[in-house]
Design a protein around this nucleic acid. Structure first.
Lengths: 203, 203
DNA sequence: TCTTTTGAACTGACTGGTCAGTGCAAAAAC
DNA sequence: GTTTTTGCACTGACCAGTCAGTTCAAAAGA
């Protein structure tokens, strides 16, 4: 069991499911479609996953796992080279952009499900969200502790806002200005974060 | 036709549909459920709307219309009182938060659908999105023209990033820290935009 | 080396249930 | 008397999940 062949099949099913569900949503995507796109019989889906729900949950776990790892690594890299915690946050913004550029379908699907309630995979999703957000929040807290950021900032809310900024900017970028480079987009976001859009004075 | 009574029925159907679809998604929500929640017979749904799809499209038009009007008004208010264009943007951030706090279900549903492709209402959604984003973009352009903002900023991307920041921060606020006031949340976002999180120096 | 057996992996027709949408006569509201 | 709503039976398409049967590579046996 769990042969290389089986792993390959599961991978193909993930790939097929992620694009179809991103395009149409979970309920509107049929198991037959997923099987067909993966080039596999319907029975194979059920040989590899207990249900359509479980296929989707495993897909979520897999994808968010990649994102979390990517953020953590980006932050660790910077601090290992002696960068500040604020630099680490900047690196995470970039890592977020890179992740979304690499897995746009997964991102779409994740966003579409994240704030839903009453769905079978809600609990799973909450746990995963917490893991990913924790990486950013910890870095913000480190930055506050190191005196790089004011103690008045609200860590959870700021982390959410950063996440949303990167998310929507990236999806917009890929949808409407796909010719632009990641450097370009990253620079635009850094500019926004440096207060060159909102101005500095004010109560 | 279009009597006050009928309008009231349509409103009840919108209300029922928006919460159910936000919770479960469009495909997973049945017409029977919508009718039941609205306290109306199934036949009434089809007397008032041509199809489930059309009910949803009209719901989208209605909701995004409210958002666009709210943003436009917030901006106009500020400039009418002699505020700067940057102040107008700040007011729009607040208006966005207020809208999401008032219509959280609609917001969820909108986010879930916004980046989907291959759905029947995709075209409608693009048009609506453009109308809403245009309000923010125009204000950014005005600010640049007035010399309040650097010409190097990327207007569409910045507008998208602002939108994402408000969106995700607001949903996070309502989901996980609902006891906080809108002033509080608004202040946190302003702080982020004023560069007190990212720092100011850098190439 | 050649043959047989084994079992994991896969297949696809089939089933039971669900749901969008219809039709319509009668009642209620205006 | 016109518009709107009700109640409810009905249809046809669609779809998640099942299961008896097939494939085939590799291990066991000769």
């Amino acid at each position: 069991m769990n042969s290389a062949r089986r792993q390959a099949t599961r991978q193909r099913l993930f790939q097929a499911a992620v694009t179809l569900i991103a395009e149409q949503g979970f309920s509107a995507t049929t198991v037959d479609e997923i099987a067909e796109r993966a080039g596999v019989a319907k029975g194979t889906v059920y040989y590899n996953f207990a249900s359509k729900n479980e296929l989707f949950e495993e897909l979520l776990r897999h994808g968010v796992g990649l994102l979390t790892a990517s953020l953590r690594e980006a932050g660790a890299d910077v601090t290992a080279r002696g960068g500040s915690h604020v630099d680490a946050i900047d690196a995470m913004v970039r890592a977020g952009l890179a992740f979304i550029a690499e897995y746009p379908s997964f991102t779409q699907l994740y966003v579409a499900e994240l704030w839903r309630t009453n769905r079978a995979w809600q609990d799973t999703l909450m746990v995963l969200r917490k893991e990913a957000v924790a990486v950013v929040e910890q870095t913000l807290r480190d930055a506050v502790a190191a005196g790089e950021l004011s103690e008045e900032i609200d860590v959870p809310l700021t982390a959410a806002a950063l996440f949303g900024m990167v998310l929507v900017a990236a999806l917009d970028w890929l949808s409407f200005q796909p010719e632009r480079s990641i450097d370009d987009v990253h620079a635009a976001l850094s500019r926004l974060l440096q207060g060159r859009v909102a101005g500095h004075a004010r109560a």
